[in-house]
């Protein structure tokens, strides 16, 4: 990348550039299609070539997410919370690198954006062992039964990450999906995918099991329909779909196996605002268990 740290330095040493790849099942493969696309800065300068994900990549990512769901959803809430907190720690350690990347991607106050992203991981980490208490409850049924409703994760969730906020928007939509035990296939911000791939490096070193988060870069209009129509995807967050006609098509395709769909919100969303629980609950199922009481 043409920043000071990566260009030819005064000593004449040529910097080593990073290849930006996909993140599937805990590994960093190139697109099986062999395709890539040029990513430029907000000012129009070339930054890197990102992998242009294909249908096959999307299907591989779904398979990895499904494979990871059993263990991740069965992990203790304490364990999931620790791992999300670890993500915040890793992100904090690479704060300067993320400020550089966010600055090139979207400009603005990159430092406050990265800080907010770190703090959001901490916020969601704390939710792991509280959402059940806040969103579940005992029910006083009229009979001799112990009746308990508890939230459980929906399954594999496809996420089209917000376009305008490639790091903070991604964290604000991804963390609430995985903290409750879902696994995710993410389509990164199409024109600004680099912070997402670097975030995948953070996830890969945070004890997050491979496959819990899978990240694709490429064209939303090409890849999102494969996720929307995939019969092994259980939920779909359309946060980053900016074309209303495409959003409607994706929602209609999602109906084939009755995916839980979160429609695109108002744009721009203020990702710095208090998120509430509204991004966790759409991908939670309520299970109610009846136990008879008797001696």
């Amino acid at each position: 990348m043409p920043t000071e740290s990566t260009s030819v330095s005064g000593s004449g040493r040529l910097a080593v550039r990073k290849t930006y790849k996909l993140f599937i099942g805990g590994a960093f493969p190139r697109s099986e299609s062999g395709r890539s696309y040029a990513v430029t800065s907000s000012g129009g300068d070339f930054l890197a070539n990102a992998a242009l994900a294909s249908r096959k990549d999307a299907r591989d990512a779904v398979r990895a997410a499904r494979g990871a769901f059993g263990k991740w959803s069965a992990a203790t809430a304490y364990n999931r919370g620790q791992i999300l907190y670890r993500v915040a720690e890793m992100l904090e350690g690479r704060r300067a690198q993320f400020i550089d990347e966010v600055s090139l991607s979207e400009g603005g106050d990159a430092a406050s954006t990265v800080d907010a992203a770190i703090d959001l991981w901490v916020w969601y980490a704390g939710w792991s062992d509280k959402i059940t208490q806040v969103y579940g409850n005992a029910n006083p049924v009229a009979g001799p039964f112990f009746n308990l409703s508890s939230p459980e994760p929906t399954g594999v969730v496809g996420l089209v990450a917000p376009q305008e906020s490639p790091l903070l928007g991604l964290v604000a939509t991804l963390a609430p999906i995985i903290v409750t035990g879902n696994t995710a296939v993410v389509l990164a911000a199409e024109d600004r995918p680099l912070p997402a791939i670097t975030l995948a490096e953070v996830l890969a070193t945070s004890d997050l099991p491979g496959g819990v988060v899978n990240l694709l870069t490429g064209r939303v209009a090409e890849t999102a329909p494969w996720l929307a129509s995939h019969m092994d995807v259980n939920g779909l967050d359309l946060a980053g779909v900016t074309d209303p006609a495409l959003a409607a098509d994706l929602e209609a395709a999602a109906a084939d196996n009755l995916k839980r769909v979160v429609r695109p919100g108002a744009t721009p969303v203020d990702w710095h605002a208090d998120p509430g629980v509204g991004r966790m609950t759409p991908f939670l199922e309520t299970k109610t268990v009846w136990h008879p009481k008797g001696v």
Partner: peptide, 20 residues
Amino acid sequence: GVVWANTFNKFDPTSPFGGY
């Protein structure tokens, strides 16, 4: 969404009902 242990087809207005 609803699991009945040692009973079945019990309903109550206080008890959430619905599917996965």
